[in-house]
């Protein structure tokens, strides 16, 4: 059994396992970081630490739109980094093992697998891929699509 935090990117539903989430922050002041690519929206002060905030839809090639005011701060193992998404959805609980519909074969889309939850397709965000993508952006290798 696993708890998932689903959110919307464009019209698609993605999700993270709750265990990877450190906190969901609301109405956080974004401070600009000089000289960064546009996918890095800025930094937030998070319990005395400076945590960069990422425009996840933009990073994954979704069109610009109204972003949620709430951000997902991933655990320290994955950053820490704050993800800005289009819309946060309700937490769901489900049995991961029985719900894996398909393994993603594409390396670029940051999807670890797709779940089918009563007809609703949920893409599991691949945090390892995400980290690689961020790495590429930060070192200036590999341009965004």
């Amino acid at each position: 059994m696993s708890q998932l935090l689903p959110f919307k990117l464009g019209a698609e539903v993605y999700a993270l396992e709750l265990i990877d989430v450190q906190e969901i922050v609301e109405h956080c002041q974004l401070h600009p970081i000089p000289g960064v690519p546009e996918t890095v929206l800025g930094a937030i002060g998070f319990h005395g630490r400076i945590v960069p905030a990422i425009d996840l839809p933009l990073l994954l090639g979704f069109p610009a739109g109204l972003r949620s005011e709430r951000m997902i701060v991933l655990t320290d193992e994955h950053g820490p980094v704050a993800l800005v998404v289009d819309q946060l959805l309700r937490i769901i609980t489900l049995d991961l093992v029985h719900s894996v519909l398909s393994q993603s074969d594409s390396e670029k889309d940051c999807i670890r697998g797709v779940l089918n939850r009563s007809g609703q397709m949920i893409s599991m965000l691949d945090l390892a891929q995400l980290r690689l993508l961020l790495q590429q952006i930060c070192t200036g290798n590999g341009d965004r699509k």
Binding site: Q29, G35, I44, I50, P52, C138, T139, G140
Partner: peptide, 26 residues
């Protein structure tokens, strides 16, 4: 403080600091 990895590798962006009034400076 330096930015968390991998953001500490951003060229031309050094460390930052949170000021007393909550603003972040780089």
């Amino acid at each position: 403080q330096s930015l968390p990895s991998p953001f500490d590798q951003l060229r031309g962006t050094g460390g930052g600091a949170i000021l007393g009034d909550g603003r972040i400076m780089f």
